[in-house]
Design a protein around this nucleic acid. Structure first.
Lengths: 213, 213, 213, 213
DNA sequence: TATGAATGAGTGTTCATTCAT
DNA sequence: TATGAATGAACACTCATTCAT
C-alpha cells in the first residue's frame, strides 16, 4: 500500500482503486506480450484509458507498477495452488490436484505465467526478489505434497522434494503455456491426462488404469 | 566484381567472420545477464573490441544481431541433444541420456537457457519464429525417445509424446536453471538423480534402486 | 476525458500552441539558411528555446515539422496573392497587382521562397504533395487573371494560361530572389518596373509608350 | 585493360574516365531527386556499379564529386545556349533561339536543371560560387540578346536587361520543369509556343500570328 | 586502379519522469 | 485525484571517410 495520507485504509474501492485495477490489467497484457523493456508507460496508460501522469500518481513509476503487478499476480497463483488441496486428500490426490489447479490457472492467466517464466532467472532485476519469493511459495505447495508422499514411504525414498517441486512446477508451466500458445483448441482434460501420465511413477498410481483417485 | 556472391555464405572466414564471432560472444554474455532491452549496442561493441558501426555493418541492427544469436545458440542446443543419444541405446537409456545432456548443456550455457525461456512464449517478437522452431527441434529429440518407448509398449500406451516432450523439456530447463541460480555448488549428479526419479515411471525403471547418487 | 478532442483543432492556444509557433519560426529561419539536411533538431529546439523532446512531442519528427512548415508558409503565400487582387480591378490591373504582391512577399519571406524553389520539383519527398498543391494554388491566382484577360479577347487568343501562369510565377520568384541575393539595396520599385516591362505585351498596357506594336 | 602506372595524362578515357562518367551520371540522378543531403555515397556507388572506395579514389569526397558535377553540367548549359544563336540572327530571332535551346536542354537534362534551381540561392554552400558563376553565364547569353534589342531601340528603352535576363531564365526553367514533371507527354512545340507568346511584347513580334511553330 | 571492412562523430528518436494546473 | 505538456538523458542508427589489401 503506501499512498493514503490523512485517513486510514478505505476498503471500498473508490475511483482510485478502479484506476489501479485498470492499470494492472493493461500492464499484464502488454508486458507479457512485449516484455518489460518494450512496453512504454504511454501504452499502458492508453490501454487503461487514463493519462500518463496517472500512472505516476498511483504507482510512482514504471518499475514499481511492475513489481506491484508481479506481487499481485504471483500471490494469486500461490493462493490458488494452496486452495487446491482438499484437507482430506491423500498425498497422491493432493499432488494431482495441485498440478491440475496449476494448469487451469495458467490457462486463465497466460500473461502472468509468461512473465513468471521470463523473469524467473533474471537475478539482477529490481523485482527479482519478489518473483523468486512467491515462486518459491508456489513450488512449496508442490513440494509439500511430495513431502507427504515421502513420509508415507513413497516410491523414491531419497527424493529431493525441493528440486522435484521445481521440476514439476517447470513441467506444468511449460506444458500449459505450450498448450495455450500452440494448441489452444485442445480440451484441458488432455493436458491433465498427459501430466497424470508423467507423474504416475511418483504418485504410485498404476499407470494405465487410474481406477482409484 | 565486388558485389556479394550468390549466397550469403562467404567461404573465407577472413576479417569479417572473425568480427562477427566476437560480436556474437559479447552479445550472448551481456544480453543473458541484463536482458535484451537493458543491453546497449555500445556495450556489445565495446566488449567485442570493435566500433559501434561495425555492429551495423555486420548485422544491420540490434534486433538482427539478437536473432542471429538465438539461431546460433539454440542450434547448438538441438545439436547437442541429438548427439547425446548413442545409436545402440535402448529407448529408456536414450531418454535418460538426452535429459542428462540437457542438464549439462544448460550448466555450461546458462545465459542461453535463460534467453530461451524468456522468449519461448513471446509470440510477437521478431525472433519468435526462430526460437520456436529450434525449440521444437530440441523437444523433438526428447519426443523421439518417447516414441520409441511407446513403440515398445511402454508403460503408458496413450501418451501424447509431443506434449510429454514439452513437459520434460520444461522440467529439465527449470531444474537446471534453479540449480545454477540457487544452489550452484551442488554436484551435477544430484540433479541427474532427481530427474531420473521423476522419469522412472516413464522409463519403466524399477523405481526403488537408485544406487548411483 | 484527456484524450484528444474530435478534430485536431484545439481552440485554446494555450501553452502548446505557443510552443508550436516558436518552433515554426525557428525552423523556417534555420532550414532556409542551411537547408533541411544540414539543420539539426537540436538547433531548432535551441533557437526556439525548448527541449529537443518538445519537437517530437509537438510534431512527431523532423520531417513532419518540415511538412507542417511548408504548409503553413506556402498557404500564406497563396493567401497573400489572392488578397492582392482588388475586386474591381481590370484583368490587366489584377495581373500587375498579383505580380507586385509576389515580389513584396518574397522580399519579406526570402527563406520560404528559397525552400519553395528547392522543393518544387523534388517529387519523391514526403512533403512534395503539399508543396505542389499549394504552389498550384498560387499559380492558379495568376492563371485566373490571365483567363480574364483571355476572356476579354486579350492579345494572345490561344494562350495556355496554365503554363503561362507557371511561367510568370517562375519569373517573379527568380527575379525577386536574385534581387534579394545579389542586389538587396535596389528599391523594390525597380523590380516592379522590370516585371511590368516583361508583361507589357500580355497586359496590353502601353508599356510606358509602346509606340510600335 | 592495362595497368600502366607512371605515364602522363591520357586523353583517351581509359578505365578511369569510364568510372568517373558512371559516377557522374549516378550522382546527378540521385541528387536531383533526393537532394544532396539525402543522397548517400553508398547509393551513388551502387548505382554506378562500383565499390564505395572508388568514389573517394576518383573524387576525393562527396562534396568534391558534387562540385565537379555542377561544374560539368552547368558548363554544358552555358555552352549550349551560346551555341544556339546563329551569327546572322536578328536580336529577336536570337532571343527566341536561346529560349528554345533552353527548353530543349532542360528537357534532356531535367536532373541538372532541378539541381540548378535548388542550389541557386543557397549562398552558404561550398559550391555556391560555382553555381552562381555559371548561372550568371547562362543568363548573360540571354541578356546579351536583350542588349542587342535595346540597342536597336526596342520596345522598352529603359529595360534593365540584366534583371530581365534573370527573369527570362527563371521563366524558361520553371516552365520546362513543370512541363517535364506534370505533363511530360506534351510536345515540346507547345512549350515553345507559350514562351513565344510571353515574350512577344519584348521581341516586337506581332502578337497574334505565331506562324513559326 | 579499385575494393569493402571498419570506423566513430553526429543525429534522429524514444520514453520514463516531472510538475503546473 | 488526475492531467498532459514539457523535459533531457540515453539510445539506436547513419554515413562520410579511411586504409589495408
Amino acid at each position: 500500500m503506501g499512498r493514503m495520507s490523512a485517513s486510514t485504509e478505505r476498503p471500498r474501492s473508490g475511483r482510485r482503486e478502479a484506476t489501479r485495477r485498470r492499470l494492472f490489467e493493461a500492464a499484464v497484457d502488454l508486458i507479457s506480450e512485449q516484455g518489460y523493456g518494450a512496453t512504454t508507460v504511454d501504452e499502458i496508460a492508453e490501454r487503461a484509458g487514463v493519462a500518463k501522469g496517472t500512472v505516476y500518481y498511483n504507482f510512482g513509476g514504471k518499475s514499481e507498477l511492475y513489481t506491484a503487478l508481479m506481487e499481485w499476480g504471483v500471490t494469486r497463483l500461490a493462493d490458488t495452488l494452496k486452495a487446491a488441496v482438499p484437507p482430506s486428500a491423500s498425498p497422491g490426490e493432493g499432488l494431482t490436484a495441485v498440478l491440475r489447479a496449476g494448469v487451469v490457472f495458467i490457462g486463465e492467466h497466460e500473461a502472468l505465467a509468461r512473465l513468471l517464466m521470463a523473469e524467473a532467472w533474471r537475478t539482477n532485476q529490481a523485482w527479482y526478489a519478489t518473483v523468486r519469493q512467491i515462486r518459491t511459495e508456489a513450488i512449496g505447495v508442490i513440494s509439500g505434497q511430495l513431502d507427504r508422499l515421502a513420509a508415507e514411504g513413497a516410491p523414491h525414498p531419497g527424493l529431493d522434494t525441493g528440486l522435484a517441486g521445481s521440476a514439476l512446477f517447470g513441467m506444468v508451466v511449460t506444458v500449459a503455456l505450450d498448450w495455450r500458445t500452440l494448441q489452444p483448441e485442445r480440451p484441458v482434460e488432455e493436458i491433465h491426462a498427459t501430466l497424470a501420465h508423467m507423474t504416475a511413477g511418483l504418485v504410485g498410481t498404476p499407470a494405465s488404469p487410474p481406477k482409484n483417485v
